[in-house]
Design a protein around this nucleic acid. Structure first.
Length: 686
DNA sequence: ATCCGCTTAAACATTG
DNA sequence: TCAATGTTTAAGCGGA
């Protein structure tokens, strides 16, 4: 179907017309293009999806405000406690060093080195200096803080009980001197606990703040981006290490440990209510000193004493420990010696609570997100198998309304694992139902280019929000992307720099390793004959020679059985493809599959173009159905196979295009792109 | 095993 | 001179 676009490439007038007609592309595409021409940063793009995000932001902010109040109260409370500790000389220098880390968000930290005031918070919210991700992290932080508040209450109860027991002891005739000492030790212990809570909180916050720093500013919230939320395991690990080291350092400051034993003995009778589950190992530790260890173990793990959750593979599973214990008794010994009730263990246990809380939170959010995604994609069932299925980034997102309704089996868009193999198979709406199951798998191929099937604008448009924000490598070849970039431009021509900008604008992945992928872009531009360089007054622009696609397709088909097979399957898609296209377009009343290359993307033109394309493609093939070929989007499926060895007559494409002047609107627009170029090249590419 | 396509790296030339 | 641009070659990898 790209014949039309191919011929249009020659026709300058039609190319311009295409640019105007492409305005009814998805909103964001138009916005992007406009932004590009206006020299605006793409970060300010506001599509329909972004409006939804704004609403979500407002809701989040409301909740956040409540959470911030809690945070504020708690911080004030902690400040008071800290002052007390300073008076009592228990202040840890390390904590003092980390004091600035208490400030939660980066922007807040820049505003104030101290405590966040409500006014400042309000300001933050009003100015929306925080991205939704940051807000989310903040929320998580404050949930953790609330958890700590519960902890504090818990310890207060402990303290009360302790004092009660002390009173009893006093009545029993204990010496006043000893009592006084005990009381002092209690106080010290409690202060220590509070201090440790602050420490852990600071660790948490600092870690999460570090996480915030990695979030690219200005990014709109994405429901499809669960990655930046919550704490990743490495962070948790790091958290443990930090806590461990922090308290190790704190121990060197000479905190009294003698008080702990006494305290724990008294605390043993109080069973934590809310946190009993999580605190269980710790509570049992509290209850018994090392002498009573067997009993403690029997408390926690009555029936399986040797399947201790903290012991596995001969290694102590205490977070951050990993000490080797040959057998279970030695492990118990180690547990009691190294992980007895002390400040460190208490702190670690508390952190573990937070970790669990975080994970549960994240799990809940991801579940909710998954549900929303499935709902959005009209997946009726909530089968959990849908998520771990191999990703089909493109196809699922390319789903049109009608198509998704017609294919309830289609996988939801679950790009929850960017590390997962990229298996996006560009499928058209009608294709998904029948072929989706055959296309799953860890396929790294860029189908869109392997069969010379460029990405449709719909693919880009509907995936762009995802790829814009998630650092996931797009499942398209460089050639496809370049072609798409060029065809998306109003005049079907881009300078190299504009192509660069398109890459960085459309794909977060290409905001790194600029030297690498830019080199690849240049390489592809030079390598593939379909990219035609057109000299211009201002330099040179790159265009796509669609004719080259057309010319080479039959050769490839006749020569490559596998490709024949694929084209056969493409042909099989023809009928439902058109139907789905028509339905989709009719429903949306917009040309969903408007591509710049399609020129005037009316329904009739598009459908006929597809048919024409397919008919042309199937000249040398039979119409057998193939079930093993990857599905492709309509635009992609019908694209000819690319052969690059055939020399191209430059005049063919250059003639008309030479009349076109450059868009000349690329320069100031992408100053932000420069930022990406300077990033260190440390990303593992594959 | 081989071919092919894609990616990446790199060297080199050209140009503004 | 320098950076951007453009060309070319080569190696590695994975799929067919």
């Amino acid at each position: 179907m790209m014949q039309e676009s191919g011929t249009e490439t020659k026709s300058n007038g039609s190319a311009i017309q295409n640019g105007s007609s492409s305005g009814n592309h998805l909103l964001e595409c138009g916005t992007l293009r406009e932004a590009r021409s206006n020299g605006e940063a793409p970060a300010v793009d506001l599509g329909a999806a972004d409006l939804t995000h704004v609403q979500q932001q407002q809701q989040q902010q409301q909740a956040l405000q409540v959470a911030r109040q809690l945070l504020l109260q708690q911080q004030q409370q902690q400040q008071q406690q800290q002052q007390q500790q300073q008076v009592s000389g228990l202040k840890s220098p390390k904590r003092n060093d980390k004091q600035p880390a208490l400030q939660v968000p980066v922007s807040v930290a820049m505003m104030t080195p101290q405590v966040i005031t409500p006014q400042q918070m309000q300001q933050i919210l009003q100015q929306q200096v925080l991205s939704p991700q940051q807000l989310q992290v903040l929320l998580q932080q404050q949930q953790a803080l609330m958890l700590q508040q519960q902890l504090q209450e818990f310890y207060k109860k402990q303290q009360e009980q302790l004092q009660l027991q002390l009173l009893q002891q006093q009545h029993a005739g204990k010496q006043p001197k000893e009592q006084q000492q005990v009381a002092t030790q209690q106080l010290a212990f409690q202060q220590q606990l509070l201090q440790m809570q602050q420490l852990q909180q600071q660790h948490l916050l600092s870690l999460q703040r570090q996480g915030l720093l990695t979030i690219q500013p200005g990014q709109p919230a994405l429901p499809l981006q669960p990655l930046a939320q919550g704490m990743i395991p490495t962070e948790l690990q790091q958290l443990w290490k930090e806590v461990t080291s922090a308290h190790t350092a704190e121990e060197t400051t000479g905190n009294s440990h003698s008080s702990l034993d006494l305290t724990t003995t008294c605390v043993s009778s109080s069973a934590p209510s809310k946190t009993s589950l999580i605190m269980n190992p710790h509570a049992s530790t509290n209850g018994q000193l090392s002498v009573h260890t067997p009993k403690r173990e029997s408390l926690s793990h009555e029936e399986h004493p040797h399947s201790h959750p903290l012991y596995g593979h001969g290694v102590c599973k205490w977070p951050g420990c990993e000490a080797v214990c040959e057998d279970f008794p030695s492990f118990l010994k180690h547990l009691n010696s190294e992980h007895a009730l002390d400040d460190r263990s208490t702190a670690q246990c508390r952190v573990q609570m937070q970790v669990v809380q975080q994970l549960e939170l994240q799990l809940a959010k991801d579940k909710e997100r998954l549900q929303a995604m499935m709902t959005h994609l009209h997946v009726k069932s909530t089968e959990p198998k849908a998520a771990p299925q191999p990703l089909n980034l493109v196809s699922s997102v390319t789903l049109s309304k009608s198509a998704s309704e017609a294919s309830p089996q289609s996988l939801p868009h679950t790009p929850t694992t960017p590390t997962a193999p990229l298996t996006p198979v560009t499928q058209g709406p009608s294709v998904i139902t029948t072929t989706n199951m055959h296309t799953v798998g860890p396929i790294r191929r860029r189908y869109s280019d392997k069969y010379n099937v460029p990405i449709s604008s719909a693919d880009i448009a509907q995936n762009q929000e995802f790829y814009k924000n998630a650092e996931v490598r797009p499942p398209f070849t460089y050639a496809s992307l370049i072609r798409q970039a060029i065809l998306e431009s109003p005049e079907k021509q881009l300078t190299l720099n504009e192509i660069y900008n398109w890459f960085t604008r459309m794909f977060a992945y290409f905001r790194r390793n600029a030297a690498t992928w830019k080199n690849a872009v240049r390489h592809n531009l030079s390598l593939h004959k379909c990219f035609v360089r057109v000299e211009n007054v201002k330099g040179a622009v790159w265009t796509v020679d669609e004719v080259e696609f057309q010319k080479r397709r039959p050769q490839k088909i006749s020569g490559n059985p596998s490709l024949i097979k694929n084209m056969q399957s493409s042909h099989a898609y023809c009928t439902p493809l058109n139907a789905a296209l028509q339905a989709s377009m009719a429903e949306n009343s917009i040309p969903l599959y408007t591509t710049a290359s399609m020129g005037n993307p009316t329904l009739g033109n598009l459908a006929s173009a597809i048919r024409e394309e397919l008919n042309g493609a199937m000249e040398h093939t039979n119409s057998n159905e193939s079930d093993s070929s990857p599905g492709r989007s309509p635009m992609q499926a019908v694209h000819p196979v690319h052969v690059k060895e055939e020399p191209l007559d430059p005049e063919e494409a250059e003639g008309p295009l030479s009349l076109v002047t450059t868009t000349a609107n690329h320069s100031p627009d992408f100053d932000h792109d420069r930022d990406y170029e300077d990033e260190p090249v440390n990303e593992d590419m594959e």
